[in-house]
């Protein structure tokens, strides 16, 4: 009961704050609102039983990625943006409505019922509420056991991707040296 109420409160607050976030003038305010949204989402992960993911979300997203965002915003010293909404065309409106309908179909029971009956897996039909009887205490062990056996290739490739991203970001953001410009 308490978990459901707090999940509802966190979810509603996350959606409300992200709707607030996309309509702000100052970029710093949006970044701070996004940090709060990420912490709320981490809380939701915790309630769903994914404790390691919750802590990793706070460490990586709210504590590292958003710091980089805030750095760039503060160093570039961007002025507050006046909210200009361009004219919306009929085509965009129709596509948005179509997108809503598809999303609602996929997200609610009607869509799930349609999709599930076409699958041959038993575990989706007997969808149970989240209750890991013993593995609530072994979340880290289960996640890492899976990550280093079945998903080992993906893990190694992701670490390589992170290396490429680090090198790429430094190369892109470096100032062009005067000697390079002269030789070009």
């Amino acid at each position: 009961m308490i978990t459901q109420i707090s999940f509802l409160i966190m979810g509603v607050m996350a959606v409300f704050l992200s709707a607030l976030m996309i309509t702000r003038k100052w970029p710093v305010t949006s970044a701070m609102l996004l940090i709060v949204v990420m912490m709320l989402i981490a809380g939701m992960y915790g309630l769903l039983g994914a404790h390691f993911s919750a802590v990793a979300q706070i460490i990586v997203y709210a504590g590292a990625i958003m710091v980089v965002f805030v750095f760039v915003i503060m160093l570039l010293n961007l002025p507050p943006e006046e909210l200009r909404y361009g004219r919306i065309t009929i085509g965009e409106l129709l596509l948005t409505a179509l997108g809503f309908i598809v999303a609602l179909f996929l997200g609610t029971k009607v869509g799930q019922g349609y999709l599930i009956s076409n699958l041959n897996s038993n575990s989706l039909i007997n969808a149970r509420p989240p209750y890991y009887p013993a593995s609530m205490n072994e979340n880290v062990k289960n996640v890492s056991a899976l990550m280093f056996t079945d998903y080992l290739w993906a893990f190694e490739l992701i670490s390589f991707l992170i290396l490429v991203a680090i090198v790429g970001a430094i190369v892109i953001a470096k100032k062009a040296k005067v000697s390079d410009a002269k030789s070009a």
Binding site: M32, H51, F52, V55, A56, I59, V67, M74, M136
Partner: peptide, 24 residues
């Protein structure tokens, strides 16, 4: 939590924002 002391790391990595916001 099952992820023990990582909670301390998580919350201490949020302390960066106090300094940054104060400066800006």
């Amino acid at each position: 939590l099952n992820s023990g002391f990582l909670l301390i790391f998580a919350l201490s990595s949020l302390a960066v924002y106090g300094v940054t916001l104060a400066g800006w």
